[in-house]
Design a protein around this nucleic acid. Structure first.
Length: 241
DNA sequence: ATAAATGTTAAGAA
DNA sequence: CTTCTTAACATTTA
């Protein structure tokens, strides 16, 4: 569940508890979650892969890492949640996630312009940041949460394929026009991801991720760990040049 | 059944 | 003091 668009969907699902007060708290978190008791949920936000719950007197940041999950009203029977919030008529359950209380104002901690799914998304800023890193590979640039907050490995691979560029290509090898195209395709793909995921049709639209055969040339798909970040890339050596 | 995978951080090593 | 590597965490799917 952890790429940016999924977080947006989570925020929507959880919005049923907006304005409600926490009646009971439990969970195996080591954070001071008890302090949430009696607090009112005022707002829900996201930044990239972070889910932000704004309470009357605290802001909780939830990161689902690789395996985190959540449920509304229906807990996973056999598992202890990291955090369970009981809002009387609505219950949230968060599993296998990282919890942290934000110190201070979220607006001072986050630059919303770097969140691909935010209304504040700023493609000119992204272009500046990319161009400042000429020696970085595309696969690392795409996963950089300070440039494309919310992009994960699936989005990375699909964007690389749609660009017909190999993951190892350096930024300096891309023209200005291609850099802009990269930014726009990433933004578009993130929104497609969001709509497909809502319809439970995300995997159906994967073109290269975990594929064996390139849908374009029917050649073999290469699987290789790439970049500084050492994440798995799926790509077609014939089509992505 | 074993491994790999939608991710990040912190400790340890160089 | 940096910079790089490794381990840790935790769950589902192939």
């Amino acid at each position: 569940m952890p790429e940016g668009p999924s977080l947006l969907i989570a925020a929507e699902e959880l919005s049923t508890a907006l304005g409600k007060r926490v009646r009971a708290v439990s969970g195996n978190s080591t954070q001071p979650i008890e302090t949430l008791k009696t607090q009112q949920l005022l707002e829900i936000g996201t930044h990239g892969k972070h889910l932000l719950l704004f309470f009357s007197n605290a802001t909780l940041k939830i990161h689902f890492l690789m395996f985190g999950s959540y449920r509304v009203n229906e807990p996973k029977g056999n598992r202890t949640p990291r955090l369970a919030l009981d809002f009387a008529k609505v219950q949230f359950y968060f599993y296998a996630c990282s919890l942290q209380f934000l110190e201070g104002d979220a607006n001072d901690l986050y630059d919303w312009r770097e969140d691909v799914l935010s209304p504040a998304w700023d493609e000119d800023l992204a272009l500046q940041k990319i161009s400042a890193l000429p020696n970085e590979m595309i696969c690392d640039i795409l996963m950089n949460q300070h440039i494309f907050a919310g992009v994960g490995n699936i989005i990375k691979n699909e964007v690389q394929f749609r660009m017909l560029l190999p993951p190892q290509k350096n930024v300096k090898e891309l023209s200005q026009a291609l850099r802009i195209k990269l930014i726009r395709i990433t933004h578009d793909y993130c929104w497609n991801f969001y709509y497909w995921k809502k319809q439970f049709q995300l995997k159906k639209h994967w073109q290269i991720m975990r594929k064996k055969v390139c849908p374009r040339c029917n050649g073999p798909v290469t699987r290789k760990v790439t970049g500084y970040l050492k994440r798995l890339s799926h790509y077609c050596k014939r089509c992505q040049k």
